[in-house]
Simulated assay, not measured.
Amino acid sequence: MKPLFSQPPRIDAGLFFLRLTGCLLLLYVHGLPKVFHFSEELTRIEDPFGLGPYMSLLPAIFAEVICPLFILAGVFTLPACLSVIGVLLVAMVFVHPDWSMVEGQFGWLLLIIFTTLAITGPGRWRLGGGTRREVRYGAG
């Protein structure tokens, strides 16, 4: 009997493409510059909750470097996406609340990408691509 929510292979290809492009954009534009210019970033990172520059920069690096690597591999996708979404929401709502939709469009698009991946899961094209995770995400 065919599973109720089976998906065609092109869905897996689309989810992989979304993971690949979203993660590479996040890494290239936000994550890697924070790592390569750590000392400089400490002097200019916003601190919306008054925790100090280290405690503001380290979660951003985790969400923008480590989490995209997990998402790209398709492992721990949901918690990694939630970390990325959390940092993006802090940036968009608390750090840059005065930005117009045009000024914040890249951040909003990243939120759309990683929220979509949090909802759908990684698809079958991932490391350890068994079926356990698919059932959890309702795909089989």
Rank of each mutant, 00 (worst) to 15 (best):
residue 4 L to N: 02
residue 64 E to T: 06
residue 76 F to I: 13
residue 19 R to C: 11
residue 22 G to Q: 13
residue 134 E to L: 15
residue 14 G to F: 01
residue 137 Y to A: 02
residue 69 L to E: 02
residue 90 V to K: 07
residue 135 V to L: 11
residue 31 G to H: 00
residue 118 A to D: 03
residue 47 D to E: 07
residue 123 G to H: 02
residue 97 P to V: 13
residue 6 S to L: 06
residue 27 L to A: 06
residue 63 A to S: 02
residue 23 C to L: 11
residue 122 P to N: 08
residue 71 I to K: 15
residue 70 F to H: 04
residue 22 G to W: 10
residue 115 T to G: 14
residue 69 L to P: 02
residue 116 T to Q: 05
residue 40 E to T: 10
residue 101 M to H: 05
residue 83 S to Y: 05
residue 31 G to L: 00
residue 85 I to Q: 00
residue 48 P to W: 04
residue 34 K to R: 14
residue 13 A to G: 13
residue 36 F to V: 11
residue 29 V to C: 09
residue 36 F to K: 00
residue 48 P to I: 04
residue 122 P to R: 01
residue 58 L to H: 13
residue 88 L to H: 01
residue 137 Y to V: 01
residue 85 I to K: 01
residue 76 F to W: 15
residue 76 F to P: 09
residue 31 G to W: 01
residue 122 P to T: 08
residue 72 L to M: 09
residue 118 A to I: 10
residue 106 F to V: 11
residue 56 S to Y: 09
residue 69 L to M: 07
residue 14 G to D: 08
residue 128 G to I: 15
residue 86 G to Y: 11
residue 48 P to E: 09
residue 37 H to E: 14
residue 24 L to K: 12
residue 38 F to Y: 02
residue 34 K to T: 12
residue 140 G to N: 13
residue 124 R to L: 10
residue 25 L to D: 12
residue 34 K to D: 15
residue 14 G to K: 14
residue 101 M to S: 01
residue 9 P to R: 00
residue 23 C to Q: 05
residue 26 L to H: 04
residue 39 S to V: 10
residue 139 A to K: 08
residue 60 A to H: 10
residue 75 V to P: 08
residue 27 L to H: 07
residue 60 A to C: 11
residue 108 W to I: 06
residue 19 R to D: 06
residue 23 C to K: 04
residue 57 L to D: 11
residue 115 T to Y: 04
residue 139 A to N: 06
residue 28 Y to E: 14
residue 75 V to R: 13
residue 88 L to P: 00
residue 95 V to R: 08
residue 104 G to D: 03
residue 59 P to M: 12
residue 88 L to M: 04
residue 82 L to C: 01
residue 127 L to S: 05
residue 109 L to T: 15
residue 57 L to P: 14
residue 126 R to A: 02
residue 39 S to P: 03
residue 126 R to F: 09
residue 26 L to C: 08
residue 17 F to T: 15
residue 86 G to K: 00
residue 129 G to V: 12
residue 23 C to H: 05
residue 8 P to S: 12
residue 71 I to L: 12
residue 80 A to L: 07
residue 138 G to R: 01
residue 32 L to N: 03
residue 9 P to F: 10
residue 139 A to L: 14
residue 87 V to S: 04
